[in-house]
């Protein structure tokens, strides 16, 4: 099995593989934030901090205990979710931009604290040994990414997910309908940070060296851009946003030094022309089903309606 997978990978250009894995990690992170910001409507500017907690937890589990990667990622996710819930419990009472600045502030605090801890090796960071896994890392990353897509899709259509959507729509109305807003918010935060932690763990093992400064404000903004660009609250949107933005720096490479200039301008123009994101207002399932011919095209539906008149 291991050899077969290794063989499969050796057929892929390592540069392309690197980009594919970056996209996979991006998807896990974006989906986590999508639960918090997209589904529940709580703006977080500190997602990278939870990624950081996850990355260091996961790295330490491998370094100190040599834990197998699957168990490692689960424990990492659980630890991060616990941290997320502990942080979320007090600050989720805040609303809107006050919450946003609090998450940002918390992210800065995590960064500074990690820069001062011996266990994270301060600014010198940690070298992460290869993951204890029979399956090559790229497959682990994409396996996790696909599991994350399934998990979040499941949540979206569950009773829990509907409650979160109700909170996003109107907190007071949701409360009036008997939804325990505070509890659901913390749970959604825990779920989102769980994925952030897992994403951080994958990042740590794939990149092989981590440093507290890697997980700054700009990283949080990167992840936020993914979900807004893809379409807030949309799972395919988060996946596509993660794909586009993880690959964009590489695709724009031919522009040499103008690259980041174009990247900035692209963000603005994409928002201007698709303010609700690439997948905003698009029903992805219908789109796929239509493409597969399992559901009539919108045009035909409308035509039939005309005929029916």
């Amino acid at each position: 099995m291991t050899e077969f997978l290794q063989g499969l990978l050796s057929n892929i250009n390592p540069y392309i593989l690197q980009i594919i894995v970056n996209i996979g990690i991006g998807i896990v992170l974006a989906l986590g934030l999508n639960v918090i910001t997209g589904l529940t409507g709580q703006l977080s500017l500190g997602h990278a901090a939870f990624m950081s907690v996850g990355a260091f937890t996961s790295a330490l589990l491998t370094i100190k205990l040599g834990m197998p990667i699957t168990l490692n990622l689960l424990v990492t996710g659980a630890v991060t979710a616990l941290v997320g819930a502990l942080i979320g419990y007090p600050i989720l009472r805040l609303t809107g931009d006050y919450l946003a600045i609090c998450t940002l502030g918390f992210a800065e605090i995590v960064k500074v604290v990690f820069l001062n801890l011996d266990i994270t090796n301060r600014a010198l960071g940690l070298s992460v040994p290869p993951a204890n896994s029979a399956i090559p890392m790229p497959f682990v990353v994409w396996g996790v990414a696909i599991l994350a897509i399934i998990l979040v899709s499941f949540v979206y259509n569950s009773r829990f997910g509907r409650a979160l959507k109700a909170i996003r729509g109107d907190e007071i109305a949701a409360e009036a309908m008997g939804i325990n807003v505070a509890r659901y918010k913390v749970q959604s935060f825990a779920l989102g940070t769980f994925l952030a932690g897992v994403g951080g763990g994958l990042y740590a093992h794939f990149i092989s060296y981590i440093n507290p400064s890697d997980f700054g404000f700009l990283k949080s903004i990167d992840i936020l851009s993914m979900i807004v660009l893809g379409g807030l609250g949309s799972i395919p949107g988060a996946v596509i946003g993660a794909g586009v933005l993880s690959a964009a720096p590489e695709f724009l490479r031919f522009m040499a030094n103008y690259r980041m200039l174009v990247y900035g301008a692209l963000l603005v123009f994409m928002m201007l022309f698709r303010p609700n994101g690439l997948m905003g207002g698009v029903n992805f399932t219908d789109m796929v089903l239509r493409a597969l011919g399992r559901k009539p095209h919108l045009k035909t539906v409308l035509q039939n309606r005309e005929v029916g008149k």
Partner: peptide, 16 residues
């Protein structure tokens, strides 16, 4: 929905 998504994910992976 889940199956479709799974499919899409794998397609994207495969295509790349």
């Amino acid at each position: 929905k889940v199956t479709a998504l799974l499919l899409a994910g794998m397609l994207a992976f495969g295509a790349a």
